[in-house]
Nucleic acid binder design. Sequence first.
DNA 1: CTGTTAGCGCCTTCAC
DNA 2: GTGAAGGCGCTAACAG
Lengths: 334, 334
Amino acid sequence: MGKVTMADVAALAEVSKSTVSQYMNERFHYMSHETKKKIERAIDELGYSPNGVARSLRQKKTRTIGVIVANILHEFSTGIVRAIEDTCHANDFHVIVCNADDQPEKEKHYIDMLRAKQVDGLIVLPTSDNQALFTQLVEQHYPLVFLDRLIEDVEVNAVLSDNLEAVRLAVEELVGKGYEKIGLITQPIKHHITPRVERKDAYYQVLKNLGVHVDQALVRSAEVDDVQKVMQQMMSEFPPDAVIAGNDRVLQEILKYIQSEKLFVPEKLAVIGIDDVSFAEFFNPPLTTVAQPTFAMGRKAAELLLAEIEDSEQGLREKNTYRLQPVLKRRLSC
Amino acid sequence: MGKVTMADVAALAEVSKSTVSQYMNERFHYMSHETKKKIERAIDELGYSPNGVARSLRQKKTRTIGVIVANILHEFSTGIVRAIEDTCHANDFHVIVCNADDQPEKEKHYIDMLRAKQVDGLIVLPTSDNQALFTQLVEQHYPLVFLDRLIEDVEVNAVLSDNLEAVRLAVEELVGKGYEKIGLITQPIKHHITPRVERKDAYYQVLKNLGVHVDQALVRSAEVDDVQKVMQQMMSEFPPDAVIAGNDRVLQEILKYIQSEKLFVPEKLAVIGIDDVSFAEFFNPPLTTVAQPTFAMGRKAAELLLAEIEDSEQGLREKNTYRLQPVLKRRLSC
DNA sequence: CTGTTAGCGCCTTCAC
DNA sequence: GTGAAGGCGCTAACAG
């Protein structure tokens, strides 16, 4: 019943609070079978359940972590969050999820609130170049892991997908099938949004290695709302025979464009998306994609964070960036 | 940092802890401008930030709520969670999200953990008929709101979509367009999974009102993994000319079946989904759906819960079930 | 094996 | 206007 305290249990069981505490923490090395029974009885007679806040205050551990994503509505974030939650649950941790919506102030605000709440650590998909803030966290040895994105000069463990490999898979698939004018559309390239930068760079690099000429007109970046317009332009000015969607959001916009123009896929335009999407399998036609290992990424990040939390030494170790491998899902859109 | 306490601030500002406390809580009714300044200075000199855990212990409020969904990977839950998070954030609350995966034990475990953590309230999409547990919470006046599903005899505020109306919109649209053999596929009907029950009942009722004969062969329930098989059977034994997907998961399976059989939609089979899905708009053909007001539902639930939390009187008021209105999204699949 | 003591960091009367 | 004292519920030495 909420307001039953350890003292009540102790009183009823006729022992002291500390004995009850021992019991609760399963430290009954030498506890007599008898007192154990008495305490047991008292506990369920009163319906006692320990107050986690008091314990947290005492132990300076909350067994809670914070996760800051851009927007949980994005499939990628959802997968990440689910994986983190699972991993934490397995370790008796809880997760507070926050949506920063790519707003630096919101991100900062959440970080402040979470720290005030004494969460034991943070997994963040940094939505902004909030360098100073993160540097400060690092200096204070606050357990922190980055996911999907990196921030320069902030030394933390980070989990990313191998973006070069993702693009390589996509491009080689396309080139292998004989496509020659391969477009790439990404969201706006901003310095700190690692996947966009890396994928674009990879695109050039892979095509170069393959000896394929790249026309600048085929490489475009745009806000989600402008993707259809950009597609339109590209198709009329310098029509590609295949297009790579830089991520799931872009893919959706490309599909809207295709739908509105009633373009045949892949005959008129082949499509390949980076990021697997829930509807890829039964889309018409089924969509070939490069799936990021979302689940594995979330789990890895959670594992790294929990390790940092449980082992304070860990905080001093060298930090790494882990690259997880994407996989090509061959379907029929190219 | 982090270990700076109110005492430190008090010492540096040369006032007492309580004065600092007053300051932190903006209770400077009569505080001299001077001490205010001193405290201010001390605070940012030390980079002080109050310890939420200690405050929570003292105030018996954590400004955190728990949300238990079946699985955050489902679009419906994602939307709900996002709306809840937004509403809570606007009120300076945090949200701990848990995935019960339709497992009663997991649900119970989460509820226990969350209560131990002293969360101020719970929003749950009850995944199981854990009646006793919920009844107990209600008796203890623990702030609790149900979402999407109801549990008999548990008197709490609940937010559901108007399932009768949702089905009515779908059926009338179909009948209006001249379809005569309208199938319905839902996940297994279990007593406590309100939307499934209500939608199926509504289907019968609406068709009856319209004077349309219903053939039992057209009404099927199946686990997600069996939906394709059931479609197969239905199409060969008693082919409908239109099918209503009882929810988003079922819709996806129906679409897989359609994809694998290369059926033309809507010529060969019209499709209408209850639950809007992210890809409906650009699917081929664009899918007509009945959208549940996911966002509004989440927000409403959060508002009800926060009201219960902030106003203890509220807990004694009569509880209601709020029905939010779905809307038909006319596209081209029927 | 169990009890005593002393806080964790904050808030809140109640004096001064 | 400000300070002193006590306590929220639990844990961790240290005695016994």
